[in-house]
């Protein structure tokens, strides 16, 4: 590369190019973005932990293993017999459903007892949670039981030794899920119940919403039917409990089916659904993209002008 007769380096010849600044910014963003994604702890690590304790495969629950989990992950805050300490509440009357809900949604064990926990990958496999629940019900306390007839979380590939076993479990799960959701046939009941009791926190779309004091109602997209059911009967966090007398099991089924159907509903209005945030996003996009495009066009057509007007 030569310039003015001098040989210059490739980079020197280009560093004052009009686009050089943009290239540097894009490279820097890409570096930090990729670097962060590489360094930051992700779901992989949680998965690695669950891999260490592979599913045993038998249907018998193992109370001893449940005790081990309780002692390791629960007792430090909830006390050795679940009566609570300064860091965690008394759990002797919350029931197995609450244990299953909190642990399977990854909210427990908590990393910060003072803050609301977001949903994350569970520390334990479903079998381990069953063991924990068995130990809880034998030694700690009682309350609403895990609704075993409601489909729980989908099986994960990492918990199975081979592909076939996983495929079989997945097919079985999907069948149960379909049967549960399509077993609800009265949309109106589910809709009325949801919009009357749930939407004012979780929003009409189930995408969650803000609550008082820095808390929030979580979004329901990832929640399994069983987790929604358990949340209703146990009332975690700020949520009131809706026991089976207030909303009967078949009504709960209608309600859960309504939410799940709504969330699986395709967006008929266009490929961009603006995360179903609604009017705030619509107004924002209308101004920033819509009006900007039109004004850019106005600038373009008025900039072109003959020399003599």
């Amino acid at each position: 590369m030569t310039r003015n007769g001098e040989t210059v380096k490739w980079i020197t010849a280009r560093r004052r190019h009009p686009l050089a600044g943009y290239v540097v910014v894009i490279l820097a963003l890409a570096f930090f973005g990729v670097g962060y994604a590489y360094v930051a702890p992700g779901a992989d690590r949680a998965e690695a932990q669950t891999l260490a304790t592979e599913a045993t495969g038998d249907d018998q629950t193992d109370v001893a293993r449940g005790r081990e989990i309780f002692v390791r992950s629960c007792a430090s805050c909830h006390g050795p017999s679940g009566e609570g300490t300064g860091n965690g509440p008394d759990i002797t009357d919350v029931g197995g459903a609450a244990i299953d809900f909190q642990v399977s949604t990854g909210r427990m064990p908590s990393t910060n007892p003072d803050a609301q926990m977001p949903r994350k990958a569970s520390m334990y496999t479903q079998e381990e949670i069953y063991d924990l629940v068995a130990y809880y019900e034998e030694e700690i306390g009682e309350g609403p039981e895990v609704p075993l007839d409601v489909p729980g979380s989908a099986p994960e590939r990492s918990n199975f030794a081979d592909e076939e076993a996983y495929e079989a479990a997945k097919a079985e799960y999907e069948e149960a899920y379909e049967a549960y959701v399509s077993g609800a046939d009265d949309v109106e009941v589910g809709m009325e119940l949801y919009l009357t009791n749930c939407a004012h926190c979780h929003s009409w779309s189930g995408s969650g919403g803000a609550l008082t004091d820095g808390k929030w109602a979580p979004e329901l997209d990832d929640a399994s039917p069983r987790q929604i059911y358990e949340a209703m009967i146990t009332g975690p966090g700020q949520m009131p409990a809706f026991n089976d007398m207030i909303i009967q099991p078949d009504e709960k089924q209608e309600l859960i089916a309504y939410v799940k159907d709504l969330q699986n509903e395709p967006d008929a209005g266009g490929i961009f659904n603006l995360n179903r945030i609604g009017q705030v996003a619509e107004g924002f996009i209308g101004w920033t993209v819509g009006l900007s495009l039109i004004v850019a066009c106005a600038i373009w057509i008025t900039a072109k002008q003959r020399a003599h007007d």
Binding site: L195, A199, E282
Partner: peptide
């Protein structure tokens, strides 16, 4: 997706137009 209105229905996360 919103569904019909009934006087008992109420939801968070909805605004008027901008």
């Amino acid at each position: 997706l919103f569904g019909p209105f009934s006087p008992t229905s109420i939801t968070s996360g909805l605004q008027p137009d901008w």
